[in-house]
């Protein structure tokens, strides 16, 4: 009989992995958003939060978390490409001349069919995102501040500076909408992939997916747009949103 690890390579296994890793990242995204909201509270609060994360578990915490997330997304991407590009075209080498949608109970649509493209857009964005924020210091000058005699990157400053640039906010907006699409199908789909749904719970999961998709994409959008629109307020030394 097939072992569990063997089973993970089956078509069903791929989806367990997709769903599981997808949900891990959804969890991360929720946490990340909540943390990011501290931008509203100002420079000190946000930088403090960043520092807290950096020093978690004597500095090892963040590496563990990052490695975990990296592994998760690696698995997610690997299987995503396998499901949506490799297996898909192998299973139907000759396509239809006309494709339609049966409507009714079908959940097929731009979101479900675009998962790989919204996913790849997210991937591209993630790399870009890491370059512009996390590894910003490698690619150019960044401001530092001193706390207890130690130098730290002024992450708040970096973020606000980026979000004052229209093109950056533009890209961010587009990607967040794509991210919302990814989640609109992804969240309920993940529960279905893990075999957690039945006739009654499916509509609930679909609603949850909508809610999360809207909250997360609007939530993440809210920050750059607000910072861009209210740059004077955010760019002050204290930073944050003053109304």
């Amino acid at each position: 009989m097939t072992t569990f690890t063997g089973a993970l390579r089956s078509s069903l296994g791929k989806k367990y992995l997709m769903g599981f890793t997808g949900l891990i990242w959804v969890g991360f995204a929720i946490g990340h958003l909540i943390g990011n909201l501290l931008l509203l509270a100002g420079r000190e609060a946000f930088n403090g939060y960043a520092l807290f994360l950096e020093t978690l578990g004597h500095g090892a915490g963040i590496y563990v978390a990052e490695a975990f997330l990296l592994m998760a997304i690696g698995i997610h991407i690997w299987n995503g490409i396998s499901v949506a590009l490799v297996d898909k075209s192998a299973a139907r080498p000759i396509g239809y001349e006309v494709t339609g949608n049966a409507g009714g109970r079908s959940r097929k649509g731009a979101a479900s069919q675009g998962m790989i493209w919204t996913g790849l857009a997210i991937l591209g964005f993630l790399i870009f995102h890491l370059i512009t924020f996390k590894f910003a210091y490698l690619f150019g000058h960044v401001e530092h501040y001193t706390l207890n005699g130690e130098q730290h990157v002024d992450l708040y400053g970096v973020v606000v500076e980026r979000f004052s640039q229209a093109w950056y906010v533009g890209i961010y907006t587009v990607v967040m909408l794509l991210f919302g699409m990814h989640l609109k199908h992804g969240v309920w789909s993940a529960f279905q992939s893990l075999g957690l749904l039945n006739k009654k719970t499916t509509p609930l999961a679909v609603q949850l997916a909508w809610v999360l998709a809207v909250l997360l994409s609007i939530g993440f959008l809210f920050l750059p747009v607000t910072i861009f629109a209210m740059n004077e307020s955010f760019a002050t030394p204290a930073g944050g949103l003053h109304l």
Partner: peptide, 10 residues
């Protein structure tokens, strides 16, 4: 050689 299920529901 069937494909994987992506929960399109079609």
């Amino acid at each position: 050689g069937f494909g994987d299920c992506s929960n399109h529901g079609e």
